[in-house]
């Protein structure tokens, strides 16, 4: 038994998974009829302008659009392997330059949202489970239900309105506009900090409420298990007991959640990002999908897939560390 071997094996499995995903992503992007250039020409013609067909033809050749889809797939795949994510036709820039800061800001927003979710959900979930059917539990349940049912964008609009009414603050964007495109500096960081909490609350609310529900349900299950009675029969005080046994068990689902929480937060954040005009990847992805800017869209989708796969890897490894049944289970089962 070795954990190192397990991790190596899990890493090896990631390769075919990602390959499969890339093929799927490519197929989906290819599905709509036509390509970017065709929609571009149509658009220009609709506006009564003449298209520079020579330039377009040149780009077509350069990006192998005159070749079959399978060949283009391998060009795309090969490019990604050495960091070339292709060319955004709409922005007329390499994808990596278009995305630029946005990628890191997206990761930042997602990460802060996850931390926020956990920080809020954990104590409330534990309180609700240990005080089941109390007024506090009912009240928090009600708040949670509202949190789940109100759509993100609605919350965003409401918050924007009241922030403007009461504080006279415009809460859009992730930073003051003057910092856009600037290199990272102390002021820029402060500006981001002062802006980020609003999207974090908006994006995190539904997830937090859902997580409270799940933590409460899981913990309630655990609290009625025999081993809790055993621990009480030992004379253990309620607080340490809760922390050592049921909470530790309920952690398992938290960890197995890491894999799915990343993509769900990122995709759930897109509408909010549009409403709040955040400088994240969300609005750009939707735009890219609409205009068939295929390399840009493909890179985003691959990025999401990569995050999911990494999340799964992290949660699998963490589970193996934390749960001896997973770590040693294979040997005990003789």
């Amino acid at each position: 038994m070795s954990l190192a071997r397990y991790i190596l094996w899990r890493l090896a499995v990631m390769v075919p998974t990602l390959l499969l995903i890339s093929a799927l992503v490519f197929t989906i992007i290819e599905l709509p009829p036509g390509d970017y250039f065709e929609s571009y020409i149509t658009e220009l013609q609709a506006m009564g302008e003449s298209a520079d067909l020579a330039e377009i033809e040149q780009l077509r050749t350069k990006y192998h659009f005159d070749e079959p889809a399978v060949v283009r797939y391998f060009y795309w795949l090969g490019g990604m392997l050495h960091g070339d994510f292709g060319y955004s036709f709409e922005y007329r820039l390499p994808v990596s330059e278009v995305v630029g800061d946005r990628l890191w800001l997206t990761i930042l927003v997602s990460f802060v949202t996850i931390v926020f979710t956990w920080l809020i959900a954990f104590p409330i979930g534990i309180y609700s489970a240990t005080h089941q059917y109390s007024w506090g539990d009912y009240g928090l349940t009600l708040v949670g239900m509202i949190g789940i049912s109100v759509p993100n964008f609605m919350l965003a609009v409401i918050l924007m309105y009241f922030a403007n009414q009461w504080f006279g603050v415009s809460i859009g964007h992730l930073m003051d506009q003057k910092f856009l495109g600037e290199p990272m500096s102390w002021e820029k960081f402060r500006s981001i900090l002062s802006h980020i909490w609003i999207p974090v609350i908006i994006i995190g609310t539904a997830g937090t409420a859902a997580m409270i529900r799940r933590l409460r349900a899981n913990l309630l299950d655990e609290l009625h298990k025999q081993y809790v009675t055993t621990a009480r029969a030992k004379g253990m005080a309620p607080g340490p007991l809760l922390r050592k046994y049921p909470l530790r068990m309920a952690l398992n689902f938290f960890i197995s959640d890491i894999g799915s929480i990343l993509p769900s937060i990122i995709s759930g954040a897109e509408v909010t990002a549009i409403v709040l005009s955040l400088e994240t990847t969300g609005p750009m992805l939707i735009n890219a999908l609409q205009s068939q800017d295929m390399y840009l869209a493909g890179s985003f989708l691959m990025f999401l897939a990569f995050l999911t796969v990494i999340g799964m890897l992290v949660s699998d490894i963490a589970l193996a560390f934390l749960d001896p049944r997973i770590r040693l289970g294979g040997e005990a089962r003789k």
């Binding site: 081993y227 009675t229 055993t230 029969a233 004379g235 253990m236 530790r248 068990m249």
Partner: peptide, 30 residues
């Protein structure tokens, strides 16, 4: 209930074993 006097008796002066040896232990601790 669950006060310090009650807990001092449990486990030290009165012990208990249960029917289900499978579930009476936490699976995550040695």
């Amino acid at each position: 209930r669950d006060g310090i006097e009650a807990r001092a008796i449990r486990g030290a002066r009165i012990g208990q074993i249960f029917q289900e040896p499978m579930t009476s232990f936490s699976p995550l601790h040695t």
